[in-house]
Design a protein around this nucleic acid. Sequence first.
DNA 1: TATTCCCTGTGC
DNA 2: GCACAGGGAATA
Length: 260
Amino acid sequence: MPEQPEVEHAARRLREALVGRRVRDLALLHPALRRTLDDAAAASLAGRTVVGVERRGKHQLLRLDDGRTLHAHFRMAGDWAIGRDDAPLPRHARAVLQCEDGTRVALVDPRALASLTILAAGEPSPVLGPEADDPALDVATLRASLARRRGPIKPVLLDQRVVAGVGNIYAAEALWHAHISPRAVASSLGPVRVGRLLDGIRTALAEGARTATRYRDDAAGADLAVYGREGEPCRRCGAPIRRIVQAGRSTYFCPSCQRT
DNA sequence: TATTCCCTGTGC
DNA sequence: GCACAGGGAATA
């Protein structure tokens, strides 16, 4: 289940599998995908060649040789299954992109929340904030964008217009690294804490990238600092990790060393 | 700014 | 059964 590091890894695999290959067809296997793409639009990909694959935040952009873009978003549970078309389709395959040379990419998505859309040539991709690794993202920029926000910092970090690609796991991890309470009011953060937060975001995402060669499972989850560790000792101070709910999502934090 | 909903699966 | 799941758009 993807956050930005997992999506980056997925996009790399996709690039390797698809760039230079010609599409035979795109089949939609689950009706939920028709919320954003109809069969005629999917069929219009036939004969197109994939010329590039980019990632922006958690979005994947498949550039086509006619200038259009197939835009994929995994949401909560998506992933690519990449292989040859003689292999059996995996369970929960919701869409299948078949190439002329036998390469087959399946969108595997148990919850059927992922989306596929087609962007016309020149049509803008979704509005997102800067990438976490963008050198233009500095303390002043981040502080300015937080200054306009009234609520607690943790839900604000999930807003993709603040920093693209930060999800529920890494928002919690970043705040832990930064010693900042998830309940701290975003606009109240001064330059020192925003500096720590920016470092924390980068640290958390870099740490995620190291272990994102595949999707997290129980074993891989073991190296997260706070996420999913309710009741377990803080790796820094030993106090029990707490779970609270903010904006309908779980937040994990150490009430002892993330005080303000 | 917080809830509700989209879907389905897993684990208690 | 019910709570919960890594996202985000649509609501109230």
